[in-house]
């Protein structure tokens, strides 16, 4: 579903991504860990079409991202710690608007169903600026999947959520996983990150430092490498440069 070949991104004098090769099959849930400045967010920004790579290729569903980026962007949904929502519009208006941007047929009906799914149907006509952080994040998830994407990119989606809202988000991600959506999630919390993951990737210094399928046997190794890399010599690399 997602193929990266020698992906590089240079920002200023630094190689944020220094040659990433990766293949993610359809329906796999991949959690990406890494210290600050490891290139996690940059990787997701390139996959979402927000940023152009400095080198290498990105393929989504067999097509090269650079060749048909507008069409391929329709395959991807993005959840970030930024919600991408308009404060002055209501929850329903935000979803209908994004539905139109993604060419969703009968966007109002789909928006209403999603509001129900994320538990916000009561607040459908309230402006987003009146929402709590947790409510906004739930709405942001609904926004990200309004067009039923084949790939969901989640960049620290739990940021700012309390425990209850976090559980709701985990439930939603589980449902998307069961529906066969390919999910790439960046997370800093180990237990939260591996809870749903089929595979864990640790980035460090712009390279893949660990790439392991999550099994009961591999979990210990993943944790050890996580402690070593995320808390070790690569930690805070962005502050040092």
């Amino acid at each position: 579903m997602i193929v990266l070949r020698g992906l590089r991104k240079r920002l200023g004098a630094r190689d944020v991504l220094a040659g990433i090769d990766l293949e993610v099959p359809r329906g796999q849930f991949v959690t990406i860990f890494g210290p600050n400045g490891a290139g996690k967010t940059t990787l997701l920004r390139i996959l979402s079409g927000l940023m152009r790579p400095s080198g290498g290729d990105v393929y989504l569903g067999g097509a090269r991202l650079e060749d048909d980026s507008v069409a391929l962007r329709a395959m991807v949904g993005v959840v970030s710690h930024h919600t991408y929502l308009y404060d002055d519009l209501t929850a329903l208006e935000n979803l209908v608007f994004y539905g139109k941007m993604y060419g969703v047929k009968d966007a109002p009906e789909r928006a209403r169903r999603l509001l129900e799914e994320v538990g916000l149907s009561v607040f459908a006509h309230d402006p987003v600026r009146t929402f709590s952080r947790g409510m906004q994040q739930k709405l942001a998830i609904a926004r990200a999947v309004i067009h039923e994407p084949e790939v969901l990119l989640a960049d620290e989606p739990y940021t700012g959520l309390d425990r209850r809202a976090g559980e709701v988000l985990t439930g939603l991600l589980r449902r998307f996983k069961e529906r066969g959506v390919t999910i790439l999630m960046v997370n800093h919390d180990f237990d939260q990150g591996v809870a749903l993951a089929d595979r864990v990737i640790i980035l460090a210094g712009g390279r893949v430092a660990l790439d392991e399928l999550v099994t009961s046997e591999s979990l210990r190794l993943i944790r050890e490498r996580y402690e070593e890399l995320v808390g070790g010599k690569y930690a805070g690399v962005d502050q040092k440069q």
């Binding site: 927000l50 507008v70 329709a74 919600t83 991408y84 929502l85 002055d88």
Partner: peptide
């Protein structure tokens, strides 16, 4: 300015919109 709140502009940039 309105597009900068909550990075809404990024939301439009990742949508399949020319």
């Amino acid at each position: 300015t309105r597009e900068r709140y909550n990075q809404a502009l990024h939301g439009l940039m990742i949508a399949p919109v020319d």
